[in-house]
Amino acid sequence: MSKMRLIIWGAVLLLAGLFLVNSCTTVDASHEGIKVSKIGSDRGASDIENVTGWIFYNPLTSFIEQYPTFTQTKDFDPFQVSAKGGTLFKIDPTLNYHLVKGQGANVYRKYRKELPDIENNILRTIVYNSYRDVANSFSPDSLVNNRAGFEEQVEAKLRKALGDDGFSFENITSGLMPPESLQAMIDAKNTAVQNALRLNNQIASEKASAEIAVTKANGIARAKVIEAEAEARANELKQKTLTPMLIQQQWISKWNGQLPTTQLGANSSTLIQMPVK
């Protein structure tokens, strides 16, 4: 009989230990814990409390749901939205967000889902609707050429929609891609613009080179004119200064005193007649 009692007490203690293990958990500072009652048809939607640290609860009547409060990165599957006129653009978004502290109870009360389920359903719908609504207000060309403005409007809608649900928007990358036909047109247009700019630059360069050559030629011609004018002026001055007396003096200074050996005419003279004073 005593042996049976020991077995019974051992089983009771084991069950009690298992119960205690399953009725205790901890919520660290990077999460927000929510204690939810299982009692009632509402599953305790009106009886939810935020909890932190070590939590003891009755697993038969309640449970603990935890939501992280640090930054979450969700890479959604790509989807398509249409611009004005029906042109389809591909969006491949990646969202960074976090739960606002103190909003865990409201999030659970509203959706009664774990965070992965909320991301794959609720948040995806919010992201899709934001892109769809904004894209419908842009023409295809403006959507491509004013991508920054498009994304700013999307972010504004996401910031409000997520804030209404207890989440804080941080940033999002759109991964916006136009259809292949439109992208080909854009590439061709960009190529044409680049070629035009290159041609204009080449023309401007050649024009500048031609102007430099003309300027240089004009400078050379002007220099020659100035040089010719200077030489003519010098010759004119020389003519004015070459008096007969000066010429005779220069001849005498260069004469070596020898008479010429060639027979001159009868009237010729080898000496310069000095003027008589």
Rank of each mutant, 00 (worst) to 15 (best):
L15A: 14
N136L: 15
K3N: 13
T270E: 04
V144Y: 11
G149F: 13
S30E: 12
A11L: 15
G257T: 02
G53V: 01
V51T: 02
S269V: 00
L15Y: 10
H31Y: 11
M185H: 09
A223L: 08
V214G: 04
F19P: 01
N235R: 15
T25R: 00
A266I: 11
W255F: 03
V27P: 00
I226M: 09
V134I: 15
S168N: 11
A232V: 15
Q183M: 14
Q273D: 05
Q263I: 12
G40P: 07
F19N: 07
I252P: 08
V12P: 03
A208H: 11
K160T: 13
W251H: 11
Y131M: 01
A192D: 12
D141S: 14
I122W: 04
I272N: 08
Y131I: 01
M4P: 05
M245G: 13
N267S: 11
I64A: 08
R147M: 12
N201P: 06
E180Y: 06
A45M: 11
S205E: 09
Q239H: 07
P178I: 01
G265K: 02
S37A: 09
A232T: 10
P178T: 00
G102Y: 01
L237C: 00
T94C: 05
Q248H: 08
A208S: 12
G257Y: 06
